[in-house]
């Protein structure tokens, strides 16, 4: 299974930008969150969270319900703005950038409940996500099909390739509204991969997936990491976290209460307490 094989067909053999980041910037974090706070009325959903993510790693965030995991992710992606704090992506301050600007720089999220475009077919859901398509520029609108057909065909090839990797090739022309829950989640993840993100923020990707798909998705994340992608993952399924995450943050009551490898964390008292009490 290789995603970059198909990438390279399109980009003409150039190494993907994600790999470059991993190769050249090692040591400087791709994501740096400083003292992030989100306050709703009197409640601090996220209360001074700071962490760094090195490129080419998979970082897991675990913790009981209501710990502020999703809220933190929401702020990092730009979907909500923080009450205070600072978010740096690739060495650049993005705290006040709107979501779509962050997405264009390669900071991409999925949603807790899979969001797909119901009126489009499954494969269209993938195609539409490719950034900077010639067909959407004023020139593309003016000149018409001739101007963008070649690029579009290459994108369709890539999308088909990805769908077949996920075992959904024959669902390509199915309307997204007719897909099952697991298939919708798969479409959402494939859609984000079409964007060739540098950093992927995923909110409970395994929820509602059967064990076979879960393992498949784990393999896909590992493969992507090998190719240089960085992933921040919220997950309740601790087995998954243990298998794929190199570093794990434990959140409770809006704070990070522990940090380290999963095997080590399992033995820590405060982590167990958070889960039992929370």
């Amino acid at each position: 299974m290789s995603f970059h094989a198909s990438h390279d067909e399109v980009s003409g053999g150039v190494t993907s930008s994600a790999t470059q980041v991993a190769a050249t910037n090692f040591g400087s974090p791709i994501l740096k969150v400083t003292d992030l706070v989100k306050q709703y009325g009197g409640v601090r959903a996220v209360d001074g969270v700071s962490f760094e993510v090195q490129p080419g790693t998979i970082v897991g965030i675990i913790g009981p319900n209501g710990a502020g995991k999703s809220t933190a992710l929401t702020m990092i992606s730009g979907f909500a703005s923080p009450t205070s704090g600072r978010i740096e992506f690739g060495g650049q301050d993005v705290t006040h950038q709107p979501m779509h600007m962050r997405a264009r720089q390669g900071l991409v999220r999925t949603f807790q409940i899979a969001r797909v475009f119901d009126g489009l077919t499954a494969i269209e859901n993938l195609i539409v996500a490719v950034p900077n398509q010639r067909s959407l520029t004023p020139m593309g609108l003016l000149a018409g099909r001739r101007y963008w057909k070649q690029e579009e065909d290459a994108i369709v090839d890539r999308a088909y390739h990805l769908m077949e990797t996920f075992g959904m090739g024959e669902k390509a022309n199915e309307r997204a509204r007719n897909l099952s829950g697991g298939q919708r989640r798969a479409v959402e993840i494939m859609r984000t991969l079409m964007m060739r993100p540098k950093l992927l923020l995923v909110d409970e990707p395994m929820a509602g997936l059967n064990p076979r798909l879960t393992h498949q998705l784990e393999d896909i994340f590992l493969e992507l990491r090998a190719q240089g992608l960085t992933v921040v993952l919220i997950e309740h399924e601790l087995g998954t976290v243990e298998r794929i995450c190199s570093e794990v943050l434990v959140m409770a009551w809006g704070k990070i209460i522990a940090q380290g490898g999963m095997a080590e964390l399992r033995t820590r008292r405060e982590v167990q307490d958070a889960y039992v009490i929370g």
Partner: peptide, 26 residues
Amino acid sequence: RFTGGPMGRALRAMRDDEHAVAAMGF
């Protein structure tokens, strides 16, 4: 040019879920 082809696809995606479209960089 706007209702068919890639632009129609992007606009329909916005119609179906504008947050997800923003998350894609639009």
